Amino acid sequence: MAAFAGRQSISDLPKRLAIFPLGGVLLLPRSELPLNIFEPRYLRMVGDAMKAERMIGMVQPDTEEGLELEKDPAARPSVYSIGCAGRITSFSETADGRMLIVLTGVCRFRIVEELPPGDLPYRVIVPDYSAFAADLDAESGAILSDRRGLLRNFDEIFAAHGLRADWSDAEGATDEALINALAMVSPYSPQEKQALLEAVDLRTRAEVLRALTDIALAEKKGGIPPVIQ
């Protein structure tokens, strides 16, 4: 089953893709990411995407220096080679000129090359989706053996960050939806979120998520160094 009508294979996906480098922000296939767009370069990017295929690639800077340069329009920090392409599935404009959009993840990609900027204020890459063709098919099998335990652990982690979670929708969610939602909202570092993105499949992502959660809880209770680099 294809992720979107009209996108039956990776050959249907755009051959060029605007990218939005944003540290600590994760987009995964079939998951929704709300974004508040206000910088002029990204307002232009969204406007151009809406006139074309409505697709944007989410990536993360791969260095601490790159994370610090996110708000510099002239900076082009290096980014991780793997990101996720999303389709704009909701769009609205505000009275003060912002754009509120929702990106729905379609397929991960590897960056082949970055194109010269030309007169565009945002960055454009050539993506290779071939290693991630399985992203276009939903995962329907059971992955989690202890959903309630995982949610209890996340309650502890959120509480340590002064956050609270509402799990009212979790009961009816598929394992894929729950794993991806937890990965996206987790208060983990950009490096750790990249590990979740690059997990080979959903089962591996669940294992990485559980390992990161165990590490976070151990640090909270006693203190051990992080192992995801």
Rank of each mutant, 00 (worst) to 15 (best):
I143C: 09
D146E: 12
G24A: 09
R44Y: 00
R110H: 03
R54G: 02
S189Q: 07
L115Q: 10
M50W: 04
N153S: 12
L202T: 05
E93W: 04
P61C: 05
R210V: 04
S9P: 01
Y129L: 08
P121Y: 14
L163P: 01
A160L: 12
R16P: 00
N153Q: 13
L67W: 09
A134Q: 15
L27E: 00
P61F: 07
P127L: 07
V46S: 06
L212M: 09
E139L: 02
D175P: 06
A49R: 14
G47W: 05
G23S: 15
A218F: 03
E65K: 07
S92R: 15
G6K: 13
R123N: 02
P226I: 03
G24C: 07
D119Q: 12
C107A: 13
V126W: 00
Q60F: 09
V112Q: 14
L69H: 02
Q191I: 00
K220F: 12
L178C: 04
E68H: 14
L115A: 06
S140D: 05
M55D: 01
I88W: 08
E139Y: 13
R41T: 10
E53G: 02
T104Q: 08
L13C: 05
A181I: 00
S186Y: 01
R203C: 01
V46N: 06
A134S: 13
W167Q: 11
G86I: 11
P226W: 04
L26Q: 00
L43T: 04
L17R: 01
T204K: 13
T63N: 09
L217V: 14
L151F: 07
A195W: 07
E93I: 11
K71N: 10
G66C: 07
F158H: 14
E114C: 07
D175A: 06
A3M: 15
R98T: 02
A195K: 13
L144I: 12
M50Q: 08
R152I: 10
S78R: 15
D135H: 03
G105K: 01
P121A: 12
D135N: 13
G172V: 06
I56M: 10
S140M: 07
L217K: 06
R152P: 01
G105S: 07
G149M: 08
K51N: 12
Y188I: 14
D119K: 13
P29C: 04
V126K: 04
F4W: 09
V200L: 09
S140H: 07
E93T: 09
L35F: 00
S186C: 13
L151V: 13
T63S: 15
L197S: 01
D119V: 01
R203A: 11
S78Y: 12
F4P: 02
F38Y: 11
P73I: 08
E64W: 05
A85D: 11
D201A: 12
Q191N: 06
Y80D: 01
T94I: 01
D201T: 12
V106K: 01
P61S: 03
P21H: 14
V59S: 06
I179S: 07
G23R: 03
I88L: 11
R110S: 15
S168K: 11
R123H: 02
E139I: 08
E68Q: 14
E65M: 07
L150D: 09
Q229R: 08
A206L: 04
G105H: 04
L212N: 04
D146H: 08
D119T: 10
